[in-house]
Measured scan of single mutants.
Amino acid sequence: QVALSRTQVCGILREELFQGDAFHQSDTHIFIIMGASGDLAKKKIYPTIWWLFRDGLLPENTFIVGYARSRLTVADIRKQSEPFFKATPEEKLKLEDFFARNSYVAGQYDDAASYQRLNSHMNALHLGSQANRLFYLALPPTVYEAVTKNIHESCMSQIGWNRIIVEKPFGRDLQSSDRLSNHISSLFREDQIYRIDHYLGKEMVQNLMVLRFANRIFGPIWNRDNIACVILTFKEPFGTEGRGGYFDEFGIIRDVMQNHLLQMLCLVAMEKPASTNSDDVRDEKVKVLKCISEVQANNVVLGQYVGNPDGEGEATKGYLDDPTVPRGSTTATFAAVVLYVENERWDGVPFILRCGKALNERKAEVRLQFHDVAGDIFHQQCKRNELVIRVQPNEAVYTKMMTKKPGMFFNPEESELDLTYGNRYKNVKLPDAYERLILDVFCGSQMHFVRSDELREAWRIFTPLLHQIELEKPKPIPYIYGSRGPTEADELMKRVGFQYEGTYKWVNPHKL
């Protein structure tokens, strides 16, 4: 086992960053958080920038500027975001240094004079007029057009580079997404736009490419001749908990499936790229999406959770019991969808996408189930092999396979070949997804960000279904809070070829 401390991990990262040409360590950078008073800024962006600063992973002359409508001070920003920093008493001095680099400007999102004030403020910072500028839009999409237009007109660096990070949702359907994309691309070049999907920053999602293309053993079996089906799962054990009003506007397909799960599907299904260059990788992902037809209604199961009468606390409440959810809402909190990649490698292999709230566990994984062994000599005792990439929690890679049961006879039983990170790298604290992705933006690497043509294809696949749901308002199937979801989803999976045995229990190697 390799035991690495946080300091050692960050030392390795620093070495990698400083050796590259793309990370300008000594240049002045300004990180501007648009929507600095909001939840995302408070819980994710400010803490992430602090962790990067604490670990010495930001360029040395980096300033952080918050911008929002609320009249706040840096002290206010500190008060609301610091509880999420997880700072230790030993880091007190470092924390003071961090907040000394912070400033805040209040202004409207659609007022040109406010942006001119913001620009004057940035120019007044040390070497601010020639600094590289990175704008993070932690804002609702309704203000994107006004904000990007004003940034472009008043706040661009004339000497350094300018980059803009856009948070999902990128529209509600193909038409609104196209409108937003066309607007942003009329102001910024594609190499300046970073559409963030934080799932692409997760260690195991990034590991998929290495697993596939750096190991000879997987190449020959990664196709329709050997793989019976692919299941991509995202499960949350909690409901909307008072935030249903926002969720109800989008629903589970827009929230998770059309982005996170579809991105994971691309990494499983794509061909080997010409290189690890950002556009070479994204070219292959677009090719996969172009091979997927629009979702067919007979390959869809929609569910909505109801309270568990035997549960406790939140578990007793259904989705419609959330006071922020519109009365009688038919918005799905669970969806199972089957897609097919219609190309030579994957023809006929079902890709089953499942996601839901208020389920029995927290889990995100990719599961490849292989065909049955031909010419069975073990009297149907063999179960199908599976390769599982567990994204969260407890990152893991393992192969479910058959071995001989101890004893006199040739009785096979299920076991696993474990390729888990935790076994080799004991207690290594890896940077989280937002840390990686923000560092990628500083480096100018777009590999783990969504390109406009990729986004367009993703919406093309799901828009007809979303429009049909909005028009017909089908009643989702009720499922109990804390269950596996509607049984109809299991029946759909069985119908397209997935075999669920229920006889195997994964042993978490992190707890051995």
Rank of each mutant, 00 (worst) to 15 (best):
A315K: 13
M264I: 12
Q392V: 03
P476K: 02
G318I: 03
L430V: 09
L471A: 11
R456H: 08
M270S: 08
K405P: 08
K287Q: 09
V337N: 10
V397Q: 00
D347L: 10
Y398C: 00
L417R: 03
G356S: 02
G307F: 05
E470F: 08
T333W: 03
V450F: 05
I469M: 14
A358V: 00
E414P: 11
N343M: 06
H448R: 10
F351P: 06
E416Q: 05
K285P: 01
D376C: 08
P323K: 13
D310W: 12
L267P: 04
E294T: 12
L465Y: 11
D372R: 09
R354W: 03
T503H: 10
R354I: 01
C355R: 00
M408G: 08
V373M: 10
E501H: 14
Q380I: 07
A335P: 02
V306D: 13
D440C: 00
R495P: 03
S329F: 03
D432R: 11
M401K: 01
K285W: 02
F409G: 15
M493S: 15
I480A: 15
P431K: 06
E416G: 10
W459K: 02
L289F: 07
F409I: 15
Y319R: 01
L471R: 14
I352W: 03
R345Y: 09
V496Q: 11
T276Q: 12
E344H: 07
P474F: 11
W506G: 04
M408I: 09
F410A: 11
L267C: 08
D279M: 13
E413A: 12
T331G: 05
V373C: 10
D322H: 06
R424H: 03
H371T: 12
G444I: 05
D321S: 12
L359D: 06
G422M: 11
T463P: 04
R384V: 06
C266P: 02
Y421E: 00
L368A: 07
A358E: 00
Q369S: 05
L261Q: 08
T420K: 06
C443S: 10
D453V: 01
D279E: 11
G482E: 06
D347C: 08
L359Q: 11
F442L: 07
R390Q: 13
F351I: 09
R456A: 15
D418E: 07
G356P: 04
V349K: 00
A274V: 12
T503W: 08
Y479I: 04
D490I: 09
T420R: 06
D279L: 11
T487N: 11
G502W: 08
V300M: 12
L417H: 04
N299E: 15
E342Q: 15
Q446W: 02
P412T: 12
Q296V: 14
P273N: 01
Y481S: 09
G318M: 05
M447T: 08
A489L: 06
G485S: 04
R436K: 14
G422Q: 11
L353H: 03
E457H: 12
E386P: 02
R460V: 03
E454T: 02
A358Y: 04
W459L: 04
L267F: 05
R345W: 08
Q258A: 08
G356E: 02
K426V: 11
